[in-house]
Design a binder for these strands. Structure first.
Length: 275
DNA sequence: CACCAGGCAGTGC
DNA sequence: GCACTGCATGGT
């Protein structure tokens, strides 16, 4: 490992933002908490340490300032969340309560392939073990960072060369064949992830669900967290409980074009406060 | 020991 | 269409 010092960059925040709520609300699996409001992770293959006091977002990286643009993009800092939250708050008083509970949450713009694989792994699983499996996948098949011990998320081409026995080290059980099918379909462009950004949402859902092990929930999470399709609305066990308790007789359609953002506030509220 | 965890595929009706 | 079940693994 080369000894190289990380450089420091500062981004001024212009809207409500919570680093911890954004990274710990269940949408991502590869960030490690270093201390309060300080996390280490990987964006676009580069190890990054990020901290925030809510007014500034400070990051440390071995790369140059070009990463600044990527980080602003990753944390979705150019989107007007006050407008989105205003839109959502007016739709239901309990949604307003969920938003006020953790108003600094943003929907990350993660890599779509990483999101797809992560949420295939997430099925019938818990967040701690999902993180463990995703990190092992990176350590086993990703590229090691030049200056540190972190690994990038492996490429579809690399993963498509693997056989079922290669995945035993992941200890991901019945999900292994699902991952293999995702690797193959993405690598061969039978499922073209980038194309899913622009096509009609139901076509995108159908495309993803041609992959074994990808049902409505995993497809929805891939579209929301990997492709920033904010109109999607992943429903898992927590969301079912929350909908029943907080929004009886309320159709998810009524959450409008930012239903995915609503979902994230409700999910976090349900999981950490309400029940 | 049972039951659960950000579901899904297979089966039976 | 809808209800039910098994599924790998690790944690309570």
């Amino acid at each position: 490992m080369t000894s190289k010092k990380k450089e420091k960059f500062i981004i001024k925040l212009t809207d409500t933002f919570s680093l911890s709520d954004t990274l710990e609300c269940g949408q991502c699996f590869r960030w490690t908490k270093m201390q309060d409001q300080c996390y280490k992770g990987v964006i676009d293959g580069e190890e990054i340490t990020v901290e925030s006091d809510g007014k500034f977002l400070t990051f440390y990286t071995y790369n140059n300032e070009k990463l600044k643009t990527k980080i602003i993009e990753y944390f979705d800092l150019n989107t007007d969340y006050s407008a989105i939250k205003q839109n959502l708050s007016s739709r239901h008083k309990n949604l307003d309560a969920a938003i006020k509970y953790a108003p600094g949450i943003r929907i990350l713009k993660q890599d779509p392939f990483e999101a797809l694989c992560s949420f295939i792994i997430s099925q019938n699983n818990n967040i701690k073990r999902i993180s463990k499996i995703v990190n092992t996948l990176c350590e086993q098949f990703g590229e090691k960072s030049l200056y540190s011990s972190t690994y990038s998320f492996p490429t579809p081409d690399r993963l498509a060369t693997l056989k079922i026995e290669d995945l035993k080290v992941l200890r991901c059980g019945f999900r292994a064949p699902y991952l293999l099918d995702a690797f193959e379909k993405v690598a061969t462009h039978k499922v073209d992830l980038e194309n899913l950004r622009k096509i009609p949402i139901n076509d995108a859902r159908q495309q993803l669900m041609t992959i074994r092990g990808v049902g409505p929930k995993v497809a929805e999470c891939t579209l929301l967290y990997g492709l920033h399709r904010l109109e999607t609305f992943p429903i898992d066990v927590w969301m079912k409980r929350a909908m029943k308790a907080l929004f009886p007789e309320f159709d998810p359609k009524n959450f409008g074009p930012y239903a995915g953002v609503a979902q994230q506030y409700i999910f976090h509220y349900a999981r950490t406060s309400f029940f």
